[in-house]
Amino acid sequence: MAPLLTVDIPQEYGYVLLTATGSLFLSTWHAFRVSPFRKAAGVNYPTQYATDEQIAATADANKKKALYLFNCAQRAHYNFMENHTPFLVSLFVAGLKFPVAASVMGALWGVGRVLYATGYTRKDKESGKGRLMGAWASLLQIGLMGMAAKVGYDFVTA
């Protein structure tokens, strides 16, 4: 049996914990943010999205736009949820060895996610292209994953 591995958690890991906590508030912001779009579109719970048929059958251009923007807001929220767990795992693991860098990358990831969501629901952008304003956050997430992999590799080879 291999000897136990001791992990010293640096004091700066607190920044990682604060960044992770901030992402929890960001998740809540996303959830609350969908509500006004839902109300404007007139889409009742538990319906998750306006269907293509529902949008096509709507003659009123303002209502059509409201349905479209509701779908964009909902998709931005789902995209956040799809990425939040991998982000948190990567942040927590990468932060063991690179706490300040991981925290800075995590905070910038959060900024990117806000830009993604707000850009996705811009009335002046079609086909959700506004989301590209914050799409760069994915690069930070991949960077965190790489840092987490490095931490894992270092543990195995220690």
Rank of each mutant, 00 (worst) to 15 (best):
K129H: 07
Y45M: 10
K97P: 10
D52G: 12
E126C: 10
A2S: 14
A40L: 12
L115F: 10
T85Y: 10
A2W: 05
Y78Q: 12
A61V: 13
F32A: 11
F92V: 08
A20G: 07
G42I: 06
L96V: 11
A107Y: 04
L69E: 00
R33G: 11
C72M: 08
M81K: 06
I9G: 06
L17D: 01
A137P: 04
T118I: 15
F70Y: 10
S138I: 11
A137W: 02
L108W: 02
V93Y: 14
Y49E: 11
M145K: 05
L17A: 06
A61Y: 10
F98G: 09
A41V: 13
E53V: 09
Y78G: 06
R33D: 12
F155E: 11
V100S: 05
A41P: 04
A117F: 00
K150S: 14
I55T: 11
L144D: 10
D60T: 14
L91V: 01
K150H: 14
A101T: 09
T21A: 12
L108C: 06
T6I: 14
S103E: 04
L17C: 05
E53D: 13
V16F: 07
K129T: 13
E126K: 06
R75M: 09
A31D: 10
C72L: 10
A101H: 08
K65Q: 15
L108D: 01
A148N: 04
R75D: 15
K123A: 13
N62T: 15
L91C: 06
I55C: 07
M133H: 08
K64A: 15
A102V: 03
A158N: 09
D124K: 13
M1S: 08
A66Y: 01
N83Q: 12
D154Q: 11
V114Q: 02
K129E: 12
Q11N: 07
F70W: 01
A59F: 08
G110P: 03
T58M: 01
T28W: 07
T118C: 03
G128M: 09
G22P: 00
K125W: 10
P99D: 10
L132A: 15
W29A: 14
G143C: 08
L17S: 05
A57I: 04
D52T: 14
T19C: 11
A50Q: 03
L140W: 01
Q48A: 08
F155S: 13
P46F: 10
V7F: 09
V151E: 07
Y68F: 08
T58C: 09
G95T: 02
E82G: 04
S127Q: 15
N44I: 15
H84A: 13
P3K: 11
Q11M: 12
A31Y: 13
S127R: 09
K123Y: 14
L115R: 05
